[in-house]
Amino acid sequence: MNAFAEFALGPFSSLWHAGNLLDKAGLLMFASTGAAFALKSGTFNLGGEAQIYASALVTAMILSTPSAVAAAELAGSGGSAGPALFFFALACALALAAGGLLGFIPGELKARFGASELLTSFLLSAALLPVIDFLIAGPLRDEGKNLLATPAIADAFRMRSLLPPSLMNASFFLACGTATVAALFLSRTRAGYRLSVAGTAPEFARFAGFPVKRITVAGMTASGALHGLAGFFAIVGTWFMCHQGLSSGMGWSALAIALIARHNPLAVIPASLLYAWIESASDIAVLSSRVSFDSTAIVQGVIFLFISAKLPIAGQLRAVLKKRRAR
């Protein structure tokens, strides 16, 4: 029991760990809201990895251009913060655009040619990842250093930690907000209603005159853009530079979270926290050399197995909860 408590409570043993957990959950939340968005619109976005990666690279690039660096210096030396804000916003917009574009292409291919977005988004991602790897290792690398990463962005562009020394920053709240807005969009607007109807009942949506093809494209584009947001905040909030392989695994985790959350953006919030908690607990267990990588992989595998299973216990629990509420 002691060992279990150590594993389970590890992430809450210090502000540093807890903050990092929240930060990780926040990034996952952006991406998995995106994944959920695609699932809701009836598409499968398997290109999340490249969408995050490309947006992160774009962000890092914009924020390390000479003029952005100059703007940051100006803001840092007590001058006007305007130019720095401009570059920050520009980077965000371009990151959204980059992610969105990588979602748009498979969406458009599906709408126009009927090509399965499941495959095209994966292939697009697989084709782009080496290119981004190359850019980071080659032309865009910080020449003076041995890191396989772009130059670090200026202090003025970095989001402040809310739980120092951890990485946790405002992006976590923005992620919760984004997921909530996405949920509200789906349940409280006509466009969201049409999107989810087109996702669950495509033929009916077509019959009812909804622009199904446009919805497909929009769903994939929004999904890509939300992944892009994850990439953006990964740079300005967490890593401050684009490392090679920065997104590896994030796209798949996001998809798994969206599935665990049954495509519901609101449920993405607890699911991301749960997922980040499992990952952090595993990481901490490895770092304190309690367990090896292998056992954490097995633990995670087993959790994946059970996470969506409808076990008899679940039914009983539900019944108990219901009885309690009735009382």
Binding site: A256, L259, I260, I298, Q300, L305
Partner: peptide
């Protein structure tokens, strides 16, 4: 999800 878990396992 269970198929993904095979990869981890």
């Amino acid at each position: 999800l269970t198929a993904l878990s095979v990869n981890l396992l």
